[in-house]
Amino acid sequence: MRVPVQIKISEETFTPRQQAVLTAALDLLVENGDGLTMTAVARRASCSKETLYKWFGDRDGLLTATVQWQAAKVRMPTVDRSHLSAKVLRESLEQFARDLLTTIVGEVSITLNRTAITHAAQEKDSLGNIVLENGPLAIRRRLKPILEAARDARLLRFNSSEDAYRTFFGLVVRDVQIRLLLGDKALTQSNVEANIEADVKAATDQFLALYGAKANI
């Protein structure tokens, strides 16, 4: 009997109209940083504030949905445990790495993370926790079952899926995100994007060299 590993999350169930609103909110974050208000989003998205409150509750609810929508760009592979092969595993890891890099080097992600870090340092509001829980931690929770399925299929060897995930994340992201957040002039977004495919392959090769249980992975 086939037992698929399906990573289905609520972040990806927004209606097209809600997606348009969340895209407007992300655009405003890029333009204004802290200047995200229900009034501004309603005006940009051509909807009423009443609709925003109905869909998202309060400003924190809107921020949460906005971060979830951004994090949903990192698609999660769906694999079949009984037919998980070395090829499928590699393709799944490469897809995750490609989406992750493409998302975190974008202007939206950089602005969102910078704003969240500033708010956390100032204890200004809950944006820091919202970004942490619905961004990095949510993405982690989606990939770990794939790693565990690969371990069950004897394609990977590790004691802790958390440690394995952190290793893979580190190999994929390296110092790119922190350098972009700090405005390293030697590292441009276009340069990173141009090298994403090479970086994805290198990170996957390195991870499988560390954790692969079979030489043909």
Rank of each mutant, 00 (worst) to 15 (best):
L89P: 05
G106Q: 10
A25Q: 02
R166Y: 10
I9Q: 11
D34N: 15
V21K: 02
K185H: 10
A121P: 00
G57Y: 03
D175T: 11
Y211Q: 01
S10H: 00
A40E: 07
H119K: 14
L180D: 11
R17K: 11
L62F: 08
K201F: 01
D152L: 14
L89H: 13
A153G: 10
L26V: 02
L93T: 06
T51K: 02
A149L: 10
E12C: 05
S48T: 05
T39W: 01
E133W: 04
F168W: 02
Q70T: 12
L127K: 05
D58S: 08
A72W: 02
K214D: 14
L63S: 10
Q189A: 03
K201P: 01
A194D: 13
A202W: 00
Q177G: 09
Q6F: 12
Q6C: 09
G170H: 06
G212I: 02
A203P: 08
E148L: 06
Q19H: 05
H83F: 14
D27C: 04
G128W: 08
S161C: 11
S46I: 13
A203I: 03
L171I: 05
Q177V: 13
F56N: 01
A20E: 14
T37E: 14
L26I: 06
T37F: 12
N32I: 00
A120E: 13
A213F: 01
I130D: 12
V176P: 00
K87V: 15
A97R: 03
L187F: 09
P77C: 00
S190Q: 10
S109L: 04
L26P: 03
D27T: 10
D175R: 03
A40F: 05
S85R: 04
G183D: 12
R98A: 13
Q70W: 13
Y211A: 00
Q18E: 11
T64Y: 09
R98N: 13
A121L: 13
P145A: 09
E12I: 00
D34S: 14
A150T: 05
Y165T: 04
L137A: 15
R157D: 04
L180T: 04
L101E: 07
N32S: 12
T115P: 02
G183W: 05
